[in-house]
C-alpha cells in the first residue's frame, strides 16, 4: 500500500490563478494527473496530483506560492456498478474517516481511483490492511522518478 503525494496550493479566488500555476508546471514539464479545487468564495485550496510531486513542490514554492505536500490514499475502483459502494463500505467498516475525496480516472472506462484525504494516513493504512483493495502505486504515479520519493516535507 503506497501513500501518494498530493500538492495543495493556497490561492485567492482571482481569475488567472490556475493559469499561473499550470503555466509553471507546464514550463517544468510536469504532468498533471488530477486537479480538485476547494473554495470558500474568496479563497481556496487547489490540489494537484502530478507525476513529479517533489519537483512541482519546489518550483511552486520558489515562485513564492503557499504550497504544502500531503499524503493521500488512491484506492483503485472497479469499473462496474457498485464499484465505489464496495470501497465505501470497507472504509466505513474499518472506520476510516474521509476528510476530502475526489475521483481520478487514469484511463477512461478502464482505470479509476478514489483519492481520499484522511487525518492520519498511517493509521488509515493500518486499518485497511488485509482488505482486498488495490491502490495506485508510486511507480505508476511517478513513472519518471527513479528514486523513491521522500516523504515528510509537508508544511506542518
Amino acid at each position: 500500500m503506497d501513500a501518494i503525494k498530493q500538492i495543495s496550493i493556497f490561492a485567492r479566488n482571482n481569475p488567472g490563478q490556475i493559469e499561473r500555476i499550470t503555466h509553471i508546471l507546464a514550463e517544468q514539464k510536469i504532468n498533471i494527473l488530477a486537479i480538485t479545487i476547494a473554495s470558500s468564495g474568496e479563497f481556496g485550496v487547489i490540489k494537484f496530483l502530478v507525476d513529479q510531486c517533489e519537483k512541482a513542490y519546489e518550483c511552486l514554492k520558489s515562485e513564492g506560492m503557499t504550497v504544502s505536500l500531503n499524503d493521500v490514499l488512491a484506492i483503485k475502483l472497479t469499473d462496474k456498478p457498485g464499484g465505489l459502494y464496495k470501497v465505501a463500505k470497507i472504509l466505513r467498516e474499518r472506520k476510516v474517516n474521509i476528510d476530502n475525496a475526489y475521483m481520478f480516472v487514469q484511463e477512461s472506462r478502464k482505470q479509476g481511483y478514489l483519492m481520499i484525504e484522511v487525518k492520519d494516513i498511517n493509521k488509515s493504512m493500518e486499518l485497511l490492511k488485509g482488505e482486498k483493495l488495490q491502490y495506485l502505486k508510486k511507480k505508476d504515479c511517478y513513472p519518471r522518478t527513479k528514486k523513491p520519493v521522500k516523504s515528510s516535507q509537508s508544511g506542518k
Binding site: 498530493q6 495543495s8 493556497f10 476547494a38 470558500s40 479563497f43 481556496g44 485550496v45 490540489k47 503557499t66 504550497v67 504544502s68 505536500l69 500531503n70 476528510d99 476530502n100 509537508s154 508544511g155 506542518k156
Partner: peptide, 18 residues
Amino acid sequence: EISKDMFDGNMEHLVDLQ
C-alpha cells in the same frame, strides 16, 4: 496574510481560521 509555514493544505483549517 496567512503564515506560509502553517499552511497544511487543509481547506477546513483555513475556514476555521477565518
